[in-house]
Amino acid sequence: MIKLNNIVATYTTRRGQVNAVDGVSLEIPRGIILGIAGESGCGKSTLMKVIYGDIGYPLALSNGGVEYGFADEKGHPVTSATIRKQWFRRISYIPQSSMSSMNPVVRIREQFVDFQGPGLNKAKVLEEVRAYIRQLDLPAEAIDAYPHQLSGGMRQRVMVAMATFFQPDLILADEPTTALDVVVQKGILLLLMELQAKMRNTIIFVSHDMGVHYQITHKMLIMYAARAVEYGDSEAIFKAPLHPYTRMLIRSLPTIGDTQLREGVSGRPPSLWENLQGCRFAARCPLATELCRTRDPAFIEHRPGQFAACHYPGEQSIPLEAAA
């Protein structure tokens, strides 16, 4: 179980301080794929940084922290304060763009082992790496190449291999397929699911694409304006969302044979610089009442295992399917 305890993450800018994540609490069971969705600027990437432990100026953790639910070599439970030492051991990361994330002038095999401390038997590890990447549908010689000699799909497979080789407990993937075409994208997603099913580790997966979330995630977190607005089993969320924002995101998905113009969510999220009152979604919500505009809804469990921050959870008046 990974616990996020009321996380507030603050950026210091020239204009002052702004909370990009503003009080997110969550319990993530082990061995699942969690998807994080939300529009740009909702705080999902910042939350990923906090979970990964990549905290440093201008980002600071002003409240709360993460308990990872596993212990380090000395038996102490790993928290936000000590997670850095576990990078690419117990926790790893798959970046968005595999091309720009690899050193162009160094062979891939060097980049596979250069984060390991001294006293590493490089030759032996590389033998294991070769054996491992063959399982990932990559030729063993792929690691002898330079990044520019591989295709985009192969590079991203290498990145997946790098992030999973040490069998970490937790893998973070920040839009790992955005830069790829749909066919290659599917291959990478299937590979991730397959590896997760085999290794039983936890994957936290950020994507804009609700379709991708539907396909691969077990649980979902929807974020809006630095807050968590809905969290629960993906299947339940897609079937019966509690929050109107989630409902509108799902409605924007096309279905096969659909000829209707898809509706987006109109309007824009509020500026985090303002003094926000009430529900942050109220200005764009068709259901908003005076209550929504004045009182901040609590993030509570409305159905077993399904949380939402809304005064009118599960309100059905927004159709999930566009009217035919």
């Binding site: 990964y52 990549d54 850095r84 990078w87 690419f88 051991r89 990361y93 970046p95 763009s97 720009s100 994330s101 690899m102 050193n103 162009p104 002038v105 160094v106 060097e110 980049q111 250069d114 984060f115 790098m162």
Partner: peptide
């Protein structure tokens, strides 16, 4: 990005400075 990613992999400052920044 490849230097940031190297940092997230947990490479040492020396490795990053010479193998990543200097080589490029």
């Amino acid at each position: 990005p490849y230097v940031s990613f190297a940092r997230l992999k947990g490479t040492s400052d020396g490795t990053r400075m010479f193998r990543y920044v200097f080589r490029n």
